[in-house]
Amino acid sequence: MARTLTFSIFRYNPQDPASVPHMQEFRLEETESMTLFIALNRLREEQDHSLQFDFCCRAAICGACAMVINGRPGLACHSKTKDYPDKITLMPLPVFKLIGDLSVDTGTWFRGMAKRVESWCHTKKIFDPTAQEERMDNALAERIYELDRCVECGCCVAACGTALMRDDFLGAVALNRVARFVLDPRDERSEQDYFDIIGTDEGVFGCMGLLGCQDVCPKSLPLQEVLGKLRLKMAFAAANHLLPRFLRREIKL
């Protein structure tokens, strides 16, 4: 114990004309059970009041504190300093617009994503407050929740070479969201509707299978499987009318 940690932190305040992007080093004594949440707050309180970063729930539930930690995107709140070497380099997430230092604007990006994939249950039904709820199989509810666990931290997007290169690529988070609604019987969208959203090179066919998303997802969502199945589903959706009957497939997620 009692290491002295060196933090190399990206600094830039776009609102300050005198500020230029640079890396700044801070030193801090490590304490028991120290996480980046504790370390960064101490740095701000004790060393530099202007240091910008985002935390919210600090319990890996809200996804606010994603940043690039020693090269890999991750949630700062559950990153323990003892798992890292003496020098820790912190950078803001790429792809998202920089607000300052380690803070980026994920809200605008994710709102745009939600609108683009129409992230809601499309139904023609009208809620009847006097009626009993529609029944659902518990196993199905659990499968939907499994994909609904995404916290929109942005790590999968930041770790995706495709998303870095092409800013119109939907990213794993959006494809996962679509898969969540594909599973949900309350959403009445047809396969063609889903195809219109993701059946393009900006959607599932743009995915190059780098699997950065799978490997950094802090919630361990099954993104590899979701993206793979979705690709297969959409590929057959496009090709079924050309195929002989025995080759046609309707892929279930």
């Binding site: 190059m208 299978g209 699997l211 099954p222 590899q224 993206l227 793979g228 199945k229 690709r231």
Partner: peptide
């Protein structure tokens, strides 16, 4: 295999 969902997470 991984892109087309033939192999799952555990099999990778």
């Amino acid at each position: 295999m991984v892109k087309w969902g033939v192999v799952g997470i555990d099999g990778r």
